[in-house]
Amino acid sequence: MTEHIPHDPTAPVDAARVIRAVEDVLRAGPLTAGDSFHAFGGSSLQAMRVCLRLEQATGVATPPELLLDSETVGEFAEAVVARAAAR
């Protein structure tokens, strides 16, 4: 499987990087912060894939429910950034 997100746990986790991870898994986009994961048919398995790739690339563990329950990918990205900052 192609590594879409550069593996660098020390690089800052910003919202753009998170949204790019969602785009890669959905094979849709470009997505903006206001887009909904569900508008592109996002499934729970795809949410799991996004979260495991983010964890591999950044070391930040994010439960897939966070993406499934977010209204927009921007909201999800903010939550991931906050988790990274709280490390």
């Binding site: 729970s44 799991m48 979260c51 495991l52 964890e55 563990a61 439960p63 897939p64 429910e65």
Partner: peptide, 8 residues
Amino acid sequence: DGDHLLPS
């Protein structure tokens, strides 16, 4: 723990 098992 958790509802979705990830590799970690």
